[in-house]
Each structure stands twice: as C-alpha cells, then as structure tokens.
Amino acid sequence: MKRGAPGLWAAALSVYAFLYVPLAIVVLFSFNDSMLSAEWVGFTTRWYATLFADQQMLDAAANSLFIALSAASLSTVLGTMAGLAMARRRSAWLGGLPLLVLGPVAMPELLLGVSLLLFFRQVLDLTLGLLSILIAHVTFSIGFVAVVVRSSLAMLDESIFEAARDLGASSWQTFRHVTLPLIRPAVLAGFLMSFTLSIDDFVITFFVAGVGVTTLPLQIYSLIKVAVTPEINAVSTLLMALTLTLIALAAKLAPDALKGRL
C-alpha cells in the first residue's frame, strides 16, 4: 500500500489534536489545585471530594441512575420484541414497524423533545418529572436496541430453527432454548447502549423534566451556565470514564452489531 504525502499526515494529526486537546484540558484541570482553569498550579483530588459532598449533584446522579436503569430495562424488552418482529419476513402489517422504531432515532432531538412536552402537558396533563423523562428515554432508545437485535438475528443460520422444529420444539421452546441464548450478547449490548444514551441525554430531558427533577446532564448544564468550576471538570471526567467503560463493554459483547453505530 502506498503511503500518503507527509503533508496529509501532518494535517490529519492536527485534526486528532483538535479532537483531543479540549477534553484533555478538562481532565487535566480536574486535578488542578486552583479555582481557576487557567494555569496549572499543582496536583489535587479535592475537587472530587467536593463533588461527593455536593448533595444536589448526588441527587441528580441518583435520578440519572434510576432513570437510566429503568429506561434501559424497558427499552431492552420493547426493542428486543421490535427487533424480533422486524426480522420476520412474512407479515404485511409489520411493514410500518421499522418506520415507527427508527423515526425517533432520525428525528432531531429538539423536535422530539418539544413534541413530547406538548403531548405530556396538553393531552395527558401529566406533571413533568421522573415518569415523563423515563417515557421520553424509552421512546428514543427502542430503535437502537431493535437495530442491534435485528442485525444479530440476520446473521443466524435459519436451519437451526428448522432443526429445533424437526426435533419437536414448540415455537416458544425454540425461542427460549435456541433464539434467546444466541441473541443474548446483542440484547445485553442494546441494554448498555440505552443505558448510555439515557444517562447522557440532555436535549430531550431538558424539555420533559419540568422544574422539580434534575438529572446529571441537567445539573451540569445549570452549573456551566453560571461559571466554570473545577467541580464541573471532575464530574465531566467521571462521566467520560463511565461512558467509555460502558461503550467498551457493549462493543465487546456485540462487536459487529455496534460497528459504525456509536
């Protein structure tokens, strides 16, 4: 393979620097012994201590965790069902399902957020809070789970289902003992993806959270709006570490299904 021009590599390296330097600075200043994120003074972990003593931040983190766990569980169940249904070929009415499932993924977040706000307040007269956030997160996560599950089903050899039938398994037994074990990694990857999407979501949550409930991104947003503090650097660093771990885990479970879908 022929190598590119050295000028091309210099350009590529500076774009990599553009991608990483800003985030590296956030991580670096989370350990800086100074209130100002302007120059390096000395190493400290006190901003992490401040963070774990900040009750508002801890409440927001607890809300985020609760919502992410419930939203991921619900969207894994609904998304897996949708993925299984979409993998079947002979079912006329299911033709619209992919549109329904992928619609929220393709729709701009802002529009999904305001349309849900409109719906919750105008039609359901629901008080905004944990429940409205949970429903919104499930709505946009189902598609991600469904796509991963469907693509893992598409890779299976159909003859194994025939074999199960020939050996006398009912359709439920086939599902329980053949299909489910085979798609388990994809289902788990879908769960981790929806967990990550939920814990990271800002835009949609912003519209459907109401006044009483905050999540981690909403709390970070309200802090950023006021001032730059090392505490934000610390919470950002922890959140980055968490997201990276979850994505690495999901990628390990279903490497092919996740390729190019981050």
Partner: peptide
C-alpha cells in the same frame, strides 16, 4: 419455521413496541 426466525408470534411481539 424459517419465516418465524425462531420466535413466537410476530404480531404479538411487534404489538407492544408498536
């Protein structure tokens, strides 16, 4: 069997997410 892709009733599965 081939059409069902190893899962019970498709429309039952598709209905809740739909």
């Amino acid at each position: 069997a081939a059409a069902s892709r190893g899962s019970p009733n498709g429309w039952l599965l598709g209905a809740p997410p739909a």
